[in-house]
Design a protein around this nucleic acid. Structure first.
Length: 282
DNA sequence: GAGAGTGTTGTAAC
DNA sequence: GGTTACAACACTCT
């Protein structure tokens, strides 16, 4: 479920609490989730936590790193009974009852704090690898949507000969990284572009508007701490995001378009549920 | 109870 | 190379 804003929110909060902590042990509760050799990280101290695309990177002192992808249902919950990150927010009860049946990996730190990786559907993963090899992973990924490198001209050049739908291509990691289904739907609504337009039919002006809209919705998503439907996405304290309170179209079938009041329609685009306004998205 | 739906992405076939 | 369908999996909703 998490898209760029959700992953960014998690990475920022981890960066507040993890640097300086030393790994005591790593518990594997499911064989599918953890890749690489956990022993390389035992006794090692966390230097920094960053994000690239929808991947979280935990950098260690010994030039190893752990990279984490949450895929659809992954969660990272940090539990330190002595410290609260969020400035007074109460931790939800279930957080205090971890591990749950969906906890796949548990990282114990020497100060008795704990990082839980929960993942209902088992698509997500953690990988331990030499920091020097990170670039190999990331060279295959296009720059983030909110990166300055992604300009209207860059995006237009990637789209100009493509017959696929514009919605599919703005979610394509090899073109630009960060938009998933929710923010892609919203960006298209803000830009007033129909999700099923063949990409090559967009004018440079439309690409410019769409890219600006994409950056705006992702930025707003980050400011609001991500999007939470059904309590599935939560931050490292188990707290929900707030973007859903301002969402333009995603999940709003039958409700009025915020631009023109027309009821939002739901269709399928390349197999994904897609919401748009039939009146103002052409 | 069967079947479709879910916020991701990699792969394989055409 | 681009496009498309489907697979990985567990759970909820119709």
């Amino acid at each position: 479920m998490p898209e760029l804003p959700e992953v960014e929110t998690i990475a920022r909060k981890l960066q507040l609490v993890l640097p300086g902590r030393e790994i005591q042990s790593i518990e594997q509760l499911h064989p599918k989730t953890l890749h690489g050799t956990p022993e390389y990280l035992l006794g090692q101290t966390i230097k920094q936590v960053t994000r690239r695309a929808k991947i979280i990177i935990i950098h260690f002192d010994n030039n190893f790193s752990m990279i984490i992808h949450l895929k659809m249902t992954g969660q990272l919950i940090y539990l330190d009974k002595k410290i609260r990150v969020g400035g007074g927010h109460p931790t939800t009860d279930w957080v205090n009852q971890l591990p749950s049946k969906h906890t796949r990996t548990v990282i114990h730190f020497t100060d008795d704090s704990t990082l839980f990786f929960n993942d209902q559907r088992l698509f997500g993963w953690l990988k331990i690898m030499p920091t020097a090899e990170l670039s190999v992973v990331f060279t295959l990924l296009a720059p983030d949507v909110i990166d300055e490198q992604v300009t209207p001209e860059y995006l237009a050049s990637k789209l100009q000969k493509r017959s696929s739908t514009i919605k599919q291509l703005i979610m394509d990691n090899t073109i630009m990284a960060g938009l998933g289904n929710i923010y892609a739907c919203d960006a298209l609504n803000v830009a007033r572009i129909h999700p099923q337009r063949p990409a090559k039919t967009l004018t440079l002006a439309e690409v410019t508007t769409l890219l600006a809209a994409s950056k705006v919705v992702l930025q707003q998503g980050i400011e609001l701490g991500g999007t939470t439907f059904d309590g599935k996405y939560v931050d490292i304290e188990g707290m929900a995001g707030q973007y859903q309170s301002v969402v333009r179209v995603y999940g709003r079938e039958g409700m009025p378009c915020l631009n023109c009041g027309t009821p939002i329609k739901k269709i399928k685009v390349e197999g994904r549920g897609t919401y748009f306004c039939p009146q103002c998205q052409l």
